[in-house]
C-alpha cells in the first residue's frame, strides 16, 4: 500500500462506556440551579445552554471534556451532542483561558473607530497575540465580532462588563485595575449569566435548600462528634 493511502494514526480512538456515569463535579449549588432551570422548559435537554454556563463556572472558566460529559449525563443526552453545542457557540471556552478575558471588538464600527489600535496596544502591552493567554494566566486577549455597543466604539468586553470609547490610556488604567480585582473574571461572567436565568424566588429557594443541606450535614457531624 502506498504511503499516501495508509491510514493515518491521528487521534487514537479511545473507548468510552456510556453506561458508566462520568465523574460528577457540580457543586450542590450548581445541582440546585440546574434543577430549577430545567423546569423552565418542557424537556431537560433544552437546559443545555444554561447547563453549559453552569459547567463553565464550575470547571473554572472553561469546558474540559469532563465538563461536557457531566452536562450530557445530567441532561440525558449524548456526549457528542453536547460537544457539538459547546463548540458551536464562541463564548464557551473549549480550552483553558486566563483569569480575565479581554474581548476586543474589531467589527465594522469599531474597526473604523480604532478597534484594531486597541487590540494592537493590548498585544504589545501584554506581550501576547490575539487568541493567546499571558504566561501568568491572568489575561486572555481575543478579537471578537460586533459587541453591539457601537455608539461607544471602540468597545471591549471584560467579563460581565463592556468598556467603551477606549483609548490606549484608558486601557492601561483598566489593566491595572483588573490585576488586583476579583471583578469581571471569566468565572464571574459565567456566574452572572447563570444568575440571570434564575428568578428571585428560585434564588431564595436555592439558598434555603443549601442552608438546609448544610444544617442537615452539620447536625449529623454534631452527632458523630
Amino acid at each position: 500500500m502506498s504511503e499516501a493511502i495508509r491510514l493515518s494514526e491521528y487521534p487514537r480512538a479511545k473507548r468510552i462506556d456510556e453506561r458508566q456515569p462520568p465523574e460528577l463535579r457540580f457543586s450542590e449549588r450548581a445541582v440546585q440551579e440546574l434543577e430549577r432551570i430545567k423546569r423552565h422548559y418542557p424537556n431537560k435537554r433544552a437546559a443545555m445552554l444554561p447547563a453549559l454556563w453552569i459547567a463553565q463556572r464550575e470547571y473554572g472558566g472553561h469546558l474540559p471534556p469532563e465538563a461536557l460529559m457531566e452536562v450530557a449525563y445530567r441532561l440525558g443526552t449524548s456526549y457528542a451532542v453536547v460537544e457539538g453545542v459547546a463548540t458551536f457557540y464562541t463564548m464557551y471556552n473549549k480550552r483553558p483561558v486566563g483569569r480575565v478575558m479581554l474581548e476586543v471588538c474589531t467589527n465594522l464600527t469599531c474597526s473604523i473607530c480604532g478597534g484594531y489600535e486597541i487590540l494592537r496596544h493590548l498585544e504589545e502591552k501584554l506581550g501576547i497575540r490575539a487568541g493567546e493567554t499571558t504566561p501568568d494566566g491572568q489575561f486572555t486577549l481575543v478579537e471578537v465580532e460586533c459587541l453591539n455597543d457601537c455608539g461607544n466604539a471602540p468597545v471591549m468586553q471584560v467579563g460581565n462588563r463592556y468598556f467603551g470609547r477606549l483609548t490606549p490610556e484608558k486601557v492601561d488604567a483598566l489593566l491595572e485595575e483588573l490585576k488586583n480585582s476579583e471583578e469581571h473574571t471569566v468565572v464571574q461572567l459565567a456566574d452572572t449569566i447563570v444568575q440571570c436565568h434564575l428568578s428571585e424566588s428560585e434564588r431564595q429557594d436555592i439558598e434555603r435548600a443549601l442552608a438546609k443541606a448544610q444544617a442537615g450535614s452539620g447536625g449529623q457531624d454534631g452527632q458523630n462528634g
Binding site: 487521534p11 471534556p65 461536557l68 456526549y79 457528542a80 460537544e83 458551536f88
Partner: peptide, 23 residues
C-alpha cells in the same frame, strides 16, 4: 447520537465525542 458536527461555518466537521471510538 455518537456522530455530531463540531464547530461551525467552514470549520464545521463531523466527529465523535473527542475523537473517541465510534461504538
Amino acid at each position: 447520537a455518537q456522530l455530531e458536527f463540531l464547530k461551525r461555518g467552514a470549520d464545521t466537521m463531523v466527529s465523535t465525542f473527542q475523537n473517541t471510538e465510534f461504538t
